[in-house]
Amino acid sequence: MGEAISFYFLASILTVLSIAVVTVQKPVVAVALLVFNLFFLAGVYALLGAHFIAVIQVIIYAGAILVLFMFVIMILNPDMDLKETGDKGKKFILFSAVSVGFLFFSFKMFEQMAPLTKEDIVSEILEDNTYEIGLQLFEDYIWPFELASLLILLGIVSAILISRKPSQNKSV
């Protein structure tokens, strides 16, 4: 009961926020809304019993990635040109096409999705799964995990290289 109420509450907020994120005018507002969005999404994760993922979501997504967005917005000119450009008619046609495509696609998907049976649903092991996640991560997924660390390293280096101002003296 409580779970259902929480879910629909969070879901309605998330829907509104998701739409708002892509429609608001100012990037800062969008980032703030996205933070809330992710925060509430973490709530949904917690509701699903994925506490570790929820916390990770908050720490990394909300606490780090979106701070980066915030930084970039502040480093760039706050008064930057935010005008939407492009042919309105063409955009509208394409917009409708994509929307209709998504609607059609989702309709078909739900139509064809095999309903979950009671036997499929297992939720016992989900309590306190941080330990299991750790075990799986370091046993079955050790190579992907190491590759992910490499990816992060590459990300750091390339981000620095790309965004670095071309320095006058080559010693730097």
Binding site: G101, F105, K108
Partner: peptide
């Protein structure tokens, strides 16, 4: 690209 993906998926979902 997205429209193409949708067409592709639509083809498989019939």
């Amino acid at each position: 690209f997205v429209l193409g993906c949708l067409v592709f998926l639509g083809f498989f979902l019939k």
